[in-house]
Simulated assay, not measured.
Amino acid sequence: MPDSIMYQEDAFVVLEPNQIEQILTPQELLEKLKGILSTRQDELPKELQKLTSVNDQAVYLRDNFCELDVGSDAYLQWYVIRLDK
């Protein structure tokens, strides 16, 4: 049986082109994703098109993906990290 600590999300490291890495809380990443998704409703990944609210789309994206294409040669990547041993 897997240890439940494997499923804890203390924070996310977020990578963007030409920017230093950021450490965000799950809520901060959710807000960042909502901001991006609210302006890109015509260009959503297929899995997100079935969800009607931007909040639901952002939660699904945060929890099930680790990258979002945000335009020509631009992307947003995020990875779960645990802050203590």
Rank of each mutant, 00 (worst) to 15 (best):
48 L>Y: 02
79 Y>S: 14
30 L>M: 05
83 L>Q: 03
22 Q>H: 12
77 Q>A: 11
45 P>G: 00
9 E>K: 06
27 Q>C: 07
2 P>C: 10
53 S>I: 02
53 S>N: 07
55 N>K: 11
61 L>G: 02
24 L>W: 11
38 S>Y: 03
77 Q>C: 00
7 Y>M: 08
30 L>I: 12
21 E>A: 14
41 Q>V: 05
25 T>H: 03
4 S>G: 04
54 V>D: 10
44 L>G: 05
35 G>C: 10
83 L>Y: 00
38 S>L: 07
44 L>F: 05
49 Q>W: 04
10 D>E: 09
33 L>T: 06
50 K>T: 11
15 L>K: 12
74 A>M: 05
37 L>Q: 05
11 A>T: 09
76 L>T: 10
55 N>V: 02
71 G>V: 09
9 E>V: 03
27 Q>E: 15
59 V>K: 14
4 S>K: 08
70 V>T: 15
60 Y>Q: 01
18 N>A: 13
53 S>A: 07
36 I>Y: 06
58 A>G: 07
9 E>Y: 01
25 T>S: 15
2 P>Y: 08
29 L>G: 08
73 D>L: 12
40 R>G: 01
81 I>M: 01
1 M>V: 11
74 A>K: 12
80 V>K: 07
36 I>S: 10
10 D>G: 09
49 Q>K: 15
73 D>C: 10
83 L>K: 00
62 R>H: 00
41 Q>E: 13
28 E>S: 15
12 F>R: 08
21 E>C: 11
12 F>N: 07
37 L>R: 02
13 V>L: 07
5 I>K: 03
6 M>P: 00
84 D>V: 10
78 W>V: 11
37 L>G: 06
11 A>N: 04
24 L>I: 13
17 P>T: 04
13 V>E: 01
67 E>I: 09
52 T>M: 07
10 D>T: 05
53 S>F: 05
48 L>M: 01
53 S>H: 09
35 G>F: 08
23 I>P: 09
44 L>N: 08
8 Q>N: 09
8 Q>W: 03
62 R>V: 01
44 L>T: 01
63 D>P: 01
28 E>Q: 14
22 Q>Y: 14
55 N>L: 11
71 G>K: 06
43 E>V: 08
41 Q>M: 10
62 R>E: 02
26 P>L: 14
5 I>N: 02
20 I>E: 12
22 Q>V: 09
44 L>P: 09
38 S>C: 12
85 K>F: 11
84 D>I: 12
63 D>R: 02
11 A>F: 01
6 M>L: 15
64 N>Q: 02
40 R>D: 04
34 K>R: 13
61 L>D: 00
27 Q>N: 13
14 V>R: 12
73 D>A: 13
17 P>L: 10
85 K>N: 10
68 L>S: 01
31 E>A: 06
6 M>E: 15
57 Q>F: 07
43 E>F: 13
49 Q>Y: 07
77 Q>P: 03
56 D>R: 11
43 E>Y: 12
55 N>I: 00
41 Q>N: 06
54 V>P: 10
34 K>M: 12
6 M>G: 15
43 E>G: 06
50 K>P: 04
25 T>D: 05
3 D>V: 10
70 V>Y: 00
